[in-house]
Design a protein around this nucleic acid. Structure first.
Lengths: 216, 216
DNA sequence: GTCTATACTACGATAGAC
DNA sequence: GTCTATCGTAGTATAGAC
């Protein structure tokens, strides 16, 4: 195993452990053991538990940029898109996010991030400062483009609610599964939710578009 | 302090601690200290750490029933409601849930529950088996009533997405606040989200109603 | 750079005083 | 029923061998 692979493994395990038990709850001993290295190497490379925690946050931000970068859009494209094009771009971002929330791989990341959302530390800055913040800003800009509405503050509120439709699939997964009378989030169920969220999104965008034209 | 008050305090603190650090991460010592009692009393009354954890889940279910019981609706009312009445009832449930998600008090509960959603234990059964499951079932039934649609499975999927719009305000609060360029979830911001979610909900219900009529 | 050995603190559980 | 005392285990950090 190369040095780089060891560090990747260490960070992946750290994300899972910190996500499940929090900064205080997780143990560097078990993280190191699971990664097949000595605990003291964490002290050496990351300066201790907190350093590893921040490195884990950084790792999430970087991997998020790699994996969802394809759905991210040039700022220039957003600014120059007509309403129909903007709607396509918006659906692409939302769709990619739904895929992430229904994927099994998202569990560790999401727990880590949700914990930081409720009690943000420096780690949240590293995550939000990456792709997450950019994508939310882009969504808000796209909503303005699609609907022709002028109220930017409201477009941002809508952005939050759109994201929530997908987030619930991860943050409240067990309740969603019971509601759907399923045991697991299989591909079929994920497709059901993805289609429904796309439909809901269009309904909301149409409503906002109609409202924006009304006073004119 | 009465015995009952001590136990209430102990459970409230336990919920916060378990929510923040998980079952393994939390410490009975600090929970007992914060509640002003000896650690061994947890062993005596709850049989140990796990017993306290389950009692905390039970406590959440009971308090949830007390606080949101006013928004819960008689099953008979749901079954006999016409579309307009059903829409009013649906907005009442969603509105109460938004209020809960924007409230500061919801933080401890929500963290506890979200953790259980990702790795459900017996504790999740106690919570979902209470008001949470009932309310989700009622929402699904109301959606069928409002829209006249026949596909129950789809109505359940819509239920999940509707809940997500509000859940995001708690599960992803820090990101929502940054997106809205605010520091705290004050009453004004909460009202903004509540109004927007109500509007989105109507847009989705209208879209589903139109679709249900289309093939006829 | 990575490991072992060790110092020190905190954990959960239990036994026994009151 | 509530407390103190104590046991065994596991935590982080550090020093030093290699």
């Amino acid at each position: 195993m190369t040095l780089r692979e060891t560090h990747e493994r260490l960070l992946d395990i750290a994300i899972a452990e910190f996500g499940a038990k929090g900064l205080e709850g997780a143990s560097t001993r078990s993280i190191a053991a699971a990664a097949g290295t000595a605990m003291s190497s964490i002290t050496y490379h990351y300066g201790g538990k907190e350093g590893l925690y921040l490195a884990a946050a950084q790792h999430i931000a970087e991997r998020m940029a790699e994996e969802m970068g394809a759905a991210a859009i040039d700022a220039g494209d957003v600014a120059s898109a007509d309403p129909a094009q903007a709607r396509v771009l918006l659906h692409r971002i939302i769709g990619a996010f739904v895929d992430r929330m229904t994927s099994d791989k998202s569990e560790a990341w999401t727990l880590f991030i949700i914990r930081e959302q409720n009690r943000p530390t420096e780690a949240f800055d590293r995550i939000y400062g990456g792709l997450m913040g950019q994508m939310m800003e882009q969504l808000a800009a796209l909503i303005l483009r699609v609907t022709g509405m002028a109220d930017e503050h409201r477009a941002r509120a809508v952005t939050g609610t759109l994201i929530g439709q997908a987030l619930v699939l991860r943050a409240s997964r067990a309740a969603c599964l019971r509601l759907m009378r399923r045991e697991t989030m299989d591909a079929e169920l994920a497709a059901t939710f993805r289609a429904q969220i796309a439909q809901n999104t269009d309904a909301i965008l149409d409503m906002l578009t109609a409202q924006a034209k009304e006073p004119a």
